[in-house]
Nucleic acid binder design. Sequence first.
DNA 1: CCCATGCGTTCGTCAAGTCGAACAGTAGGA
DNA 2: TCCTACTGTTCGACTTGACGAACGCATGGG
Lengths: 176, 176
Amino acid sequence: MIAAAIQRERSRAGKSLTALAAEAGIAKSTLSQLEAGNGNPSVETLWALAAALDVPLSLLFETEAPATKLVRAGEGDVLESEQSDFSAVLLSRCPPHVRRDVYRVVMQPGEVRRAQPHPRGTVEHMLVCAGQMRVGPLGQEEVLLAGDYYSYPGDHPHSYEALEPDTLFMMVMEAP
Amino acid sequence: MIAAAIQRERSRAGKSLTALAAEAGIAKSTLSQLEAGNGNPSVETLWALAAALDVPLSLLFETEAPATKLVRAGEGDVLESEQSDFSAVLLSRCPPHVRRDVYRVVMQPGEVRRAQPHPRGTVEHMLVCAGQMRVGPLGQEEVLLAGDYYSYPGDHPHSYEALEPDTLFMMVMEAP
DNA sequence: CCCATGCGTTCGTCAAGTCGAACAGTAGGA
DNA sequence: TCCTACTGTTCGACTTGACGAACGCATGGG
């Protein structure tokens, strides 16, 4: 499981086993065994690998990439409250080892804003406060109204487009 | 460095070294040495500990806690765009190794909702989409209008109160 | 052809992490 | 007081991860 992650990240970085072992300062035999699934590395070893791969250590524990999630205003599992004047929807539970920066964005209608992909593993969360917008990965764009929530991978080409003046939304940018 | 984190989390969970070691299925001698700073544990050991502590493994690599921050609608450092129809404000940059769960909340006026403190290090981020509310730590409550942002420690007594019907806001709950 | 250089694997050796038991210290009852 | 139950510590024995050298295997000049 960690084995696969190491192999994945190494091939993504285009490094050979020998080269990575050298950069990380560990024996290539060690790395070989790790990728073979034999072993239970020490944190020191993993730290060296993560540093050499220039990825957060967390990434070596992940298994899969996320997909999109759309929660319309009024939808979603409601967390009930003792007091009936309060209702909350958990839109996204944070996976371990990610950063989530919070933005407030105002956007005007105009041409479609096409974003070049962000670093691998990035996820964007959009919650529309006012107005109307179309947003999402290529081919999976959605029209969001006030109260709608949509999250999708940010490491694929995607676009933003305000459909009303002064469209206001909250964006949580998630990076591994 | 990992030593302090383990000790911190263990005391936060209110477990004894002996009990934690038993739950995690590791020798208490091992845990003792880890907390003493001697050692370079294997992932298996850390996984067992994180599971027994019921925290993400990331948490064992340390964290920090902030204070309150209020950004009124229209305030904040604007991230300029090449396209003038787009403006974003970075409300909160995520510190390393914290979890941030995203909620959408609808609240009705009524009695003040007093929250018992969440676990140590918790931070709440509120962005009001519609309506009006009063929220914040005891003695530092603020009235927020649509577009206002407020963040504050969640590990101190604090309260929520909607001032208009169907007050809609986004809450990002941050946990170390 | 043959040697060089790269790849990733397997092997024996050594150091280090993990274990379980025995240890000292503190409370709290009977 | 003695006993019990708990705290966290230190010790030797065992297990295992990390190392470095040697291996088999490809590729590409000279």
